[in-house]
Design a protein around this nucleic acid. Sequence first.
DNA 1: TACATTATTATAATCGTTACAAAATTACAA
DNA 2: TTGTAATTTTGTAACGATTATAATAATGTA
Lengths: 139, 139
Amino acid sequence: MKTIEKYLTDSGIKPSYQRIRILSYLMNKKNHPTVEMIHKELLHDIPTLSKTTVYNTLKQFVEKGITQIINIEDNKTRYDADISTHGHFKCLNCNKVYDFRFDNKNLEISDIEDFDFLQTHLYIKGICNECKYLLNTKN
Amino acid sequence: MKTIEKYLTDSGIKPSYQRIRILSYLMNKKNHPTVEMIHKELLHDIPTLSKTTVYNTLKQFVEKGITQIINIEDNKTRYDADISTHGHFKCLNCNKVYDFRFDNKNLEISDIEDFDFLQTHLYIKGICNECKYLLNTKN
DNA sequence: TACATTATTATAATCGTTACAAAATTACAA
DNA sequence: TTGTAATTTTGTAACGATTATAATAATGTA
Ligand SMILES: [Mn+2]
Ligand SMILES: [Mn+2]
Ligand SMILES: [Zn+2]
Ligand SMILES: [Zn+2]
């Protein structure tokens, strides 16, 4: 609890109640939520929470570099408080988004060697293990 | 010209005039256009072209597997008639989207080894060579 | 030609997101 | 503490990309 406030302060963000709760949600759930998911969930505890506040807060988190945007969906943005470079796998059956690690340093890339790389996003879509099992036992 | 019609037919798509023109645009320009870009450009030649037709056509192309969706932008969808697995680099200065090749086979991925992979999207953002040069000479 | 099927178009509706201004909260000096 | 300025949150309206719907046009076929 205390650590999250300090993390916000150190990042140049005043630790308001809403901001603390939204960041806690991201850090604890680790579910790459949409704005809708965060708002719906926190509304139970904070009945006055505005969706605009969720949007504003996430925008600020991204600007201050403590949250990254995950664009694995066609339409809606997902957010991740894990700002390390890691990959995301979306299961096309259950729609869950999984983290995975990949060797960013040894990516063998051609054609754009001299460009300046600032962000790397690796998205893989397919069927997760759980669904593979479920789909097999069904048939 | 003839080849595009055959390509559509072989993919199970009736080669209407609009579909031929939209696919030609994708294949010739290779610029990962948005719906807006395609519509605006083709409107010069086909003044009656509806934006809905562009949407419908691209949806069909994706369903039939002859076009892939590029989600490198936050808000709008881009399309690519090159359905091979390749990476995309977006320059944060000039907003151009470049193709690049990467070694998909030798990607070193942990944690999700047993999942079924269906699509792999590698997006890198940064500054392209052209802009690097321009930005340097400016200062 | 006559009729059924398919494709295209125009328009309205939807949905995620952003803009804006009012209300609430917080910071701080008198 | 009190008054006032600055910041944060909220509600509502506006926006832009996309989808749904229904009418019109084009195409295929008997
Ligand atoms: Mn993640
Ligand atoms: Mn491409
Ligand atoms: Zn799954
Ligand atoms: Zn550039």
